[in-house]
Computed example of a mutant assay.
Amino acid sequence: MTPADLSRTVLHAVHRAVAENALRAPVPARVRVERTRPGGSGDFACAVALQLAGDAGLPALEVARILRERVAAEPGIGRVEITGPGFLSFTLDAPGDSDRAMLDAVREQGSAYGHGGALRDEVLRFHHPREVRAAVTADAVRRVVLSQGARVRISCEEAGEAEWGLLGVTVDAYGTPPVTSPADPSAPLIPVRPVPAGATARELLERLGVDATRWGLLRPASHDRAPLGDDLLVQGEANPLFLVRYAHARARALPRGAAALGFTSESDAAPAPYEAASDAAPYESPARPLLDLLADHPRVLLAAARRRAPDRVARQLEAVAHAFFDFHDSCPPLPSGDEKPSAAHRSRLALAEAAGTVLAGGLSLLGISAPAHL
């Protein structure tokens, strides 16, 4: 993590604290972090708590405590201390530590990696018109917010098409419910009204099938028109749906190839050192973009849940797929020719497996299948 990365991380913590009403103060345009002076604690220090204390009407030590809670768990940060009148002092993880922790988390949590309980106190009621894109969007929103712990109920203005069931859509009630629930006044009705698809579920299923229909309806933002042409069926990397599913299938194939060669990935394999032969620093290796995207996956899922935006999940999967192929082509996880499997190959394989797991989990949240073979 660079000083610029750390500055952005602290600024993000300030944004979160203000959004969650834990801190009432204007968010600064930037946060300055500096190398700790001789005799100080940690690698870097930041005085943002002292800067915000006056506007927040709180002691700087209290502001620092609020921010520490929101920074300490971020990838790359080993320890956060409060020193002096309210300085935040940061000790960064040793290179590779946070990457190993992330890969271990993916391995342990599987397709549930990125799921959490941030919305566990929320009861969400979504209501949509009798239109296929609205129905599929509401269903995907349900899946995403459930992954973050919320309780969800979906209603539709009137009974939908029979084909909605083939698309995996479930509706809890029909008709227009009250704007607020008598059982829970804190759960207002949330409308789901994307730009209509311009076709029925039957028409789309006959032409595109389930997976391409769902991707075509969910990939664009709700306020944009959904392109639903036959290019969604093209078996080529120019088709984002094919790219994502092909990346998943390729990631799943690598462990099979490794097993045939007599080796497997190791949970404690560090992904950074395997580029030691290059002149680039470990964090600048071809693996870095993929590692960063996988580490960012939980934040993306939470943002998609809070924004009711499954398109964010689709875009994240596209980015992971592109990064996976860039990494795979630059750092092949399997040895070639007479080359023997090494620790580097095990490390690469661990990262490839993690990418496949994240792609599978993301596709599942979108209600799209993730075949192991294409």
Rank of each mutant, 00 (worst) to 15 (best):
E74D: 12
V132C: 04
P38E: 07
R245K: 12
A25M: 08
P85V: 11
S267H: 14
H12G: 15
A118P: 03
E74W: 01
D43Q: 07
S330L: 12
Q316A: 14
P188M: 08
L261S: 09
D296C: 09
A226W: 02
A352P: 03
P185M: 08
A159F: 14
S364I: 03
A249C: 09
G116H: 03
L58V: 09
Y274T: 13
M1Y: 04
H115K: 09
T9L: 10
T170Y: 10
E203N: 07
L208Y: 03
L301M: 08
S147A: 15
P227M: 07
R133T: 03
V144C: 03
P286Q: 00
E275I: 14
D279Y: 14
R37E: 11
D268N: 13
Q316L: 10
R133L: 07
A323K: 05
S267T: 11
A249H: 05
R70A: 02
A221T: 13
L233T: 02
L366P: 04
L23A: 06
A319H: 07
G160T: 01
A354M: 07
Y274H: 15
F44V: 07
P28W: 08
R32I: 15
R68W: 05
V136M: 01
L232S: 00
L254H: 06
D292G: 11
V300D: 05
A173T: 11
L232E: 01
I66R: 02
H328D: 11
E20T: 11
L317C: 01
R68H: 06
E284G: 12
H128K: 09
R120M: 13
A53I: 08
I190V: 15
A269V: 04
A53Q: 08
D139V: 07
V152L: 04
V141M: 02
A94Q: 15
R143N: 06
P178R: 04
V300P: 01
R315C: 10
G84H: 08
P75W: 03
R288C: 11
G54I: 09
Y246C: 09
A159G: 14
G117R: 13
L167I: 04
V192H: 05
L217G: 02
R207E: 07
H127L: 00
A4T: 15
F324L: 09
